[in-house]
Design a protein around this nucleic acid. Sequence first.
DNA 1: GATGAATGAGGGTTCATTCAT
DNA 2: TATGAATGAACCCTCATTCAT
Lengths: 205, 205, 205, 205
Amino acid sequence: MTTAKQRREAIHDSIRDAAISEFARNGLSGTSTQAIARTAGITKAQLHYYITSKEDLYQQVLGEIVTHWKEIFFLSASCPDDPKAVIADYVRRKIRHALEHPEVARFFAHEIARGGLEMAAHWPALRLSVDEATAVIQGWVDAGRIRPVDPLLFQMNLWAVTQHYAEYEAQVRRLMDAPAPTPLNEARIVEEATALFLGRCGLLD
Amino acid sequence: MTTAKQRREAIHDSIRDAAISEFARNGLSGTSTQAIARTAGITKAQLHYYITSKEDLYQQVLGEIVTHWKEIFFLSASCPDDPKAVIADYVRRKIRHALEHPEVARFFAHEIARGGLEMAAHWPALRLSVDEATAVIQGWVDAGRIRPVDPLLFQMNLWAVTQHYAEYEAQVRRLMDAPAPTPLNEARIVEEATALFLGRCGLLD
Amino acid sequence: MTTAKQRREAIHDSIRDAAISEFARNGLSGTSTQAIARTAGITKAQLHYYITSKEDLYQQVLGEIVTHWKEIFFLSASCPDDPKAVIADYVRRKIRHALEHPEVARFFAHEIARGGLEMAAHWPALRLSVDEATAVIQGWVDAGRIRPVDPLLFQMNLWAVTQHYAEYEAQVRRLMDAPAPTPLNEARIVEEATALFLGRCGLLD
Amino acid sequence: MTTAKQRREAIHDSIRDAAISEFARNGLSGTSTQAIARTAGITKAQLHYYITSKEDLYQQVLGEIVTHWKEIFFLSASCPDDPKAVIADYVRRKIRHALEHPEVARFFAHEIARGGLEMAAHWPALRLSVDEATAVIQGWVDAGRIRPVDPLLFQMNLWAVTQHYAEYEAQVRRLMDAPAPTPLNEARIVEEATALFLGRCGLLD
DNA sequence: GATGAATGAGGGTTCATTCAT
DNA sequence: TATGAATGAACCCTCATTCAT
């Protein structure tokens, strides 16, 4: 038995999913509310009953994504004493997410490509996460646990590689001969990416 | 003395530049011919005199970019006997291009994010370039010149890292404290990226 | 203790007040049911439960106003033997009403400005009132109690002047240096207006 | 032979006329660009090619009207030595304008009824005109040329009466038995109105 | 070539109204 | 009664494109 509240939340969820998907494909200005409504399976007028405006929906989705990422994606300092485990774990988690929710990553890429205009409110928090991770990595270097690296750029490259499999999914699928419904070979991707960053740290066997 | 032909080409060039810049920011559907015309410094009507349609302009620009990249960017087998030199050179060239023409990289990223619909005609050629490079890298592995790597994914990761500094320029600038007019520290970026891929190959030090 | 009936009437009253206020400001087509509901302190859906339609609400309010005015505002022939008293009294009453309920006058002005389309049903009654007053005034003229005037136009001018202080309230306040919460100087307005019409009749000292 | 410039101006004129007429009937928010376009005899898209926005068109028309009125309508101090002539002339001119361009007066009335929100820029100039006229009238009083009056309210009443025949045209026509195409009896209206204000000043006969 | 004008389609959004709960 | 939801029409405005000049 579905309550009214559940129905409303279901609609809100499908709107959010549709918005991510459409914005990821065509950006803010390139996406019509018509398209979002169609993807969400509702009328355009109905969509506008649930949202304040297209811009607002975009902002809201962006906010949720950034919040979510701050929690999950920046180098968890939970067990910072084992660089190898931390890095391998991060790469695995990030790539899994990229393959499972590629639209989220693409949405974010779009926003940054536009200049990150709507990110204004979120930069400080992101910055904080990055600074924390930088400290952890620098600690590893200082302790001689990994080869000297540029901690900031090391993180960016981690980000670059893991995001890539979401953003360039279409190209990756072409080159890996895995057309759309076929799942991408996650293990293979994780393995090479992990080796890349461990190799940089001198932790590769 | 400017001939009529020269003037025409100058206009075509400024249209192409404007198109890249605008499409890079907002994608195909998010960009108006009005905006392109404005950036190119001409009238909307004048623009439509020079182009067939917005879609066609997009296709044409995409074609030029892909052609250009095929020439310049895939692992040049010119001196394939020195993996370290080839990789270092590739990273340097690619990052320089990313920093100098970030809109081009962003344009391409947009296209792939959309699913690469307009890329249909270009995939085979791209594939060919990749296959050639794959053979070269595999040769290095087989000859024991570099540590065993997944040649295809190795290339993708190269691509990912070098593209990143164009696509995420806004984020990179924020995190590297280099607001818009300031040039990004190219040497620092090149160095860390080079070390990343050489480290993977066991060629560091 | 409030009965259900009392509550219903209270809502109907606040709807009517809200309608007058909103219609007075923006006319029939320029007023949204949303705005009326907001001003009345109820939901849009609730409003539509109490009214048949926006047009109908407008008609109803217009009807009430016209009825009310017929009772109060046309030259009362109660003591028709003293022109000076009748005129002075009329001006005073009418201006007081204009200052106390300016929205009512503005509502009416809007309706007439639109061409009085919805007034169809009310013209005959208005006409009757005017004809009665015309007879009274003509009687005064014939009896030599006031200077000869055009009885119909005399009434219209009375109407014009007294309405003015409601319709042009914003302008009047500006020119009399009496911004919104400040009460307008009613005595001053009444005095000059009275003198105007008595002067016309030759009744000014 | 019509030049392009002439055609453009003709369109601009018909847009302005249509705008005045429609805004006068239904106010700013109650008027659709569709309606303006229809009245102007052009397409809605065509209308939007010539105007910036509905609000802007409204503002522009309002500005033109206010400017025009400042020039024509405030007590001309050209021959301030003959109160009777000045007042009679003013009433005649103002009523003629009201009968010939009633929509202009109605447009203005609408704007004031809304609170004169868009008038912000125009109040000072209006104030100046009024102050000048006030000085002139006070001069007449001081010189004993007219009976003592409240100069500001005297002007407002002048305004009220003369505007009335435009704003309440529909009602005036009903009561004067002059349905739409029939011209109103201007002479009769001017005569009674003139007598009204001259009577106030003690200048009748 | 260049430009002002025109247009039919579609953009985002609000509307008056109805309906189920 | 009251309210959240739904809807088709209409809102203002911009779009890509064409056409005369």
